[in-house]
Amino acid sequence: MVPISWYIAVAAVLFLIGVSGVLMRRNIIVVLMSIELMLNSVNINFVAFSYMLGDMTGQIFSIFTITVTAAEVAVALGILIALVRNRKTFNVDEIDTLKG
């Protein structure tokens, strides 16, 4: 039996990797993947807590999270395609028309 604290620790580490990926990586696709990591850590949390509490809410929540994330990524990739058509770059540093 794996204690609950291990799950929380794994989720926390995964979340931090995701956050640092979003903040430090320069490629938009990698940034989106890092956001996925963050959301997956959330799912681990939900499922682990759900098992610990013997309560279904957490599992339902994680299914909703997965669904919504899929929709979110679809929109993000659509926008990315529009962006790349207008200027050929995946680098976040080069997307700098708007500032001030």
Partner: peptide, 12 residues
């Protein structure tokens, strides 16, 4: 994602 992480901790 940050909001969800918060929600998951509150749920737990």
């Amino acid at each position: 994602a940050i909001l969800l992480y918060g929600i998951s901790l509150i749920y737990g």
